[in-house]
Write a protein that binds this DNA or RNA. Structure first.
Lengths: 161, 161
DNA sequence: ATGCCTGCAAAAGATTTGCATTTCA
DNA sequence: TGAAATGCAAATCTTTTGCAGGCAT
C-alpha cells in the first residue's frame, strides 16, 4: 500500500527540514522537488528511484523524470528524510523513509520477501562498544538479517521434509 | 597487498571443494576457472570482478575476460570460496574470500577506507535471538559498521576542532 | 565427438551528465 | 535577470547474454 502524497504533521516537519537545508545551501525551493519529497515520505516500504518516478507520474506530475529524482536523492538524504536500505548483490538500490521514525534494522524473508523492521537497544549498544574497541567513532551501520519466515519454513518443511 | 595466485593448504582444500561441486554438477574442470578461484582465494581484502580480471591479466593470463569472471562468481559462491561483501549505495559489488575463514563482520572508516574485520559471538547470538523472536530461521546477515577510525578522528579534530 | 567454457562484442539495466528550457528568488 | 532545477537524450558503468571457436571428457 502506497500512501503516495498524503500529508501528516510529521511530513510537514520533514519538509521544513528540507526547506531549511535548501535555504542553507542557497538552493531554490522547487515544486517538483517537494513533490518528490512528499512521495518519498509517503511511500510505504522500500522504494527505488524508478518507483518514486512512477508514482509521481501516476499522481499527476506528468513528467517526473527519473533523472530529476536521482538528482534530488542526495539532498533528501542529507536532510534526513530518507536513507538507503541495505541491498544485496545485483539488487537495485532502494531507499526508505528515515525522518520521524525510530531507528530500526531489517529482517527479510529470502523466499517471500516479507520485511520485518526490528529495533534492539542491546544490539545498538553492542555495536557502539565494538566500534569503540577498535577506536572507531560510529556514524552509521548497515544491518540486515536474512532468513526464512515462519510461513515459508512451514511450507518448506511440508514439501521437502 | 595482493597475495595473487599463491598457494596454501587451505587454498587446496577450497579448490577441492570447487572441483567437487563441478563434478556434482557435471560441469567441466577448466583451467581458467581454477585460476580465477586461486586469484579470488589469494586476494587480500575485498575485490570487484574487475579487480580479479586485472590481477589475472597482470599475472600471465592474457585474456582473463571480466565476462568469464562474472560467469564463475556464482559457482565460487556456491562452493563457499567467496561471499559478497556489503556494499553501500552506488558502490560496485565486492566479494571476499569465505573459505577457511571464521565468520566476521566489517568496520569501515568512511574517511580513509580502512577495513577492520571483527567477530562478536555475543552479536551473533543476539541476532539469532532476534530472528527467532520473529519466527525467522536465520540464513545469513549483512552487517557493516561505518564510522571514523582513530587516525581520521584525530586528524579531523586537529583541523576542524 | 559432444557439450561446457572462453573471449569478444553487443545488449541490458541503473545512474550520471550535457544542454536547452523553465522556474524560482 | 541570474542561478538553480527540469526534462530529455546521450553517455557511463556494471553486469548479462549471444555467438563462434577452443578445450575437457
Amino acid at each position: 500500500m502506497v500512501r503516495a502524497e498524503q500529508n501528516s504533521d510529521d511530513d510537514e516537519r520533514a519538509l521544513s527540514r528540507l526547506r531549511e537545508l535548501v535555504r542553507k545551501k542557497e538552493l531554490k525551493n522547487s515544486q517538483v522537488r517537494e513533490r518528490i519529497a512528499r512521495c518519498a515520505l509517503g511511500y510505504e516500504g522500500h522504494f527505488t528511484v524508478e518507483d518514486l518516478a512512477r508514482v509521481l507520474r501516476a499522481g499527476g506530475l506528468r513528467n517526473a523524470h527519473p533523472a530529476t529524482v536521482y538528482r534530488s536523492i542526495p539532498l533528501l538524504m542529507e536532510a534526513g528524510l530518507i536513507q538507503p536500505a541495505p541491498a544485496g548483490p545485483g539488487e537495485t538500490q532502494r531507499y526508505e523513509r528515515a525522518f520521524g521514525r525510530d531507528h530500526h534494522d531489517h529482517l527479510v524473508c529470502t523466499r517471500c520477501g516479507q520485511l520485518v523492521e526490528f529495533h534492539s537497544p542491546t544490539l545498538e549498544l553492542l555495536q557502539e562498544e565494538i566500534a569503540k574497541n577498535y577506536g572507531f567513532c560510529l556514524e552509521s551501520h548497515l544491518h540486515e538479517l536474512r532468513g526464512t519466515c515462519s510461513s515459508c519454513s512451514r511450507a518448506d518443511g511440508a514439501s521437502a521434509g
